[in-house]
Design a protein around this nucleic acid. Sequence first.
DNA 1: CTATGTGAAAAAGTTCACAGCG
DNA 2: CGCTGTGAACTTTTTCACATAG
Lengths: 212, 212
Amino acid sequence: MGTNIPKPALERLPRYLRALRRERGRGKSFMSSNALGQASGVEEFQVRKDLSHVQVSGRPGRGYRIESLIVTLEHVLGLDEVRDAVVVGAGRLGQALSQYPGFENFGFNIVRLFDNDPEKVGQQVGDFKITHVQQMPEWINRHGISVAMMTVPADCAQEVADQLIKDGVTGLWNFAPVLLRVPEHVVVRHEDLAIGLAQLSHHMAWGRSDAD
Amino acid sequence: MGTNIPKPALERLPRYLRALRRERGRGKSFMSSNALGQASGVEEFQVRKDLSHVQVSGRPGRGYRIESLIVTLEHVLGLDEVRDAVVVGAGRLGQALSQYPGFENFGFNIVRLFDNDPEKVGQQVGDFKITHVQQMPEWINRHGISVAMMTVPADCAQEVADQLIKDGVTGLWNFAPVLLRVPEHVVVRHEDLAIGLAQLSHHMAWGRSDAD
DNA sequence: CTATGTGAAAAAGTTCACAGCG
DNA sequence: CGCTGTGAACTTTTTCACATAG
């Protein structure tokens, strides 16, 4: 269990999780597929189908037990284990990420921010001092870092990725607009903001309201 | 034409566009579906199918004319018309966005950065001074702004969106983790970074290398 | 009587294989 | 030949309808 979930369903789970946490925050203990759908912008039967891929069972007449559904989703999404991560590239975006509160809600704990620009090295950003990339291998090794968030320029992204992988990182969250080539055992998520922009632009030009 | 393109195909077009621009930058004038696929991480028949939704025709034996394919894709994606945009929320992410070079490649031109924090108002961020949200309505009206990028806290996002829409904005690029309710004529794109994180986390926990 | 869980139908998207063009 | 364009097969995902449970 946890695997074999259709990709589109998997992309909806985090949204359900957020809605559930919010509802829990309001002191509720049950939530129906209808309510979950409303909160997440999904039809109720889609919610039920998605949740059928996961080991839960709702109670007819009441809905799903919020607490246990949260635990299950966190487990499926791999959020029940916290991963230490570094941010590589201390530009504005890198700084924004390194400061972002709420990564802990999604299983990540940022421990350091690297850059290769001597001007930036040493600067304080929130809790971290920007550290030179030269010291990255040692850091990653010593602290057993498994994840890196990459906010470096496109033309050095592959090189940085190669280095990170050599140092032992097995997960990359890449914001550089390049397709990274990585070995089998490494997981990459390409976060391509241009896609969002292009979508917005397309829908504004040609109509249709939901560019999600 | 331009509409009626399947959503998944539409999400791949920006990647093709980027690959084409890069290739053009190298002085090439033709590119095959195979090369495009390689550069974008897509199978070649998928590329051809995607391009079949668009008014182009490649030349058997050569590939697609880069220049004209670029023009066509830009048109389909609505990038041939530049839209003025504002950024609302001058936190780290808002600042990062307002500085991002390369929006012009995707049809947007950021003209102002707003916030409601008196501490921030007046600060200089790159080319812009942070302006108080009180002045937003007037700005939007006077300059005919159609797009807003929202990097505000979740709990005021809906309120901010309502205001923006009342002022005449018809496109929202929303980074706040809430589902915005908007009238028919407004286009919203929800950019939910948590989905990417959760995906990465899931794939690291349960295996499978491409978390794209 | 309300809300889940799920087979079965419909729709959407992907993959394939191959005809046809330069 | 090399590479496009596309109908047809196949696969995945969404939608629906309804039996079932508390």
